[in-house]
Amino acid sequence: MKASEWLVRATQDLPTGVTARVKADTLAHLHDAGVDEQEDVRPLLGRPDDTAAELRRLYLTNDEWIEQRTGGKDRTGFNLSEWLVLGLPALLWLVLEVLEARAPFHGVWSIQGLLLLLLVVTLWLTQRFHPVRRRNWRLWIASVCFMFMQWPAVTELLFGGYVWLALVTLLLWLVYCTKLQLGRDARLARTLALEGEQA
């Protein structure tokens, strides 16, 4: 397998910036090793499919990249840069709940106090992010708020009033979703860096 074929196989569905960096690294490696680009490069470089798998773990694929930037061809990403439209009612609801409870860090109502804090911190921390990352994080916090806004109903309907069981379940779900979001965000940030954009 020639170097050009190996590179096509390893980078076929990656964005242009990522492909360019991998190509530069690979050709420099071949040159340093004294291997001609027309020779079979697999003994030196290994299987291109292994490289492809590693690269997809690190970077977004081209389709994911387009989806993130434009909402995709079917607009499934709902490219709403105005996710604050959802965030603002959530913020208002939380403020009202905290004020009404008068004791934001007491009993089940402490959830609202912590959510309000999380919402404000997320909005503040993401203000300098790339627009795509900012939108993703704000969508994440809007989802979290929505999930916990249903707190009393969820507790009653699904857990028969067992507050702590509901709380533990929701917190586990929150940890899982946050882990997924952190992984997606890391891939996006790495891709942005190689696409020449400030993450």
Binding site: L45, E54, L58, A186, R190
Partner: peptide, 15 residues
Amino acid sequence: AREGTLYPALHALEA
């Protein structure tokens, strides 16, 4: 350390 795993590892360390 084959190139196929070396450079992705370097990219991750850099990130």
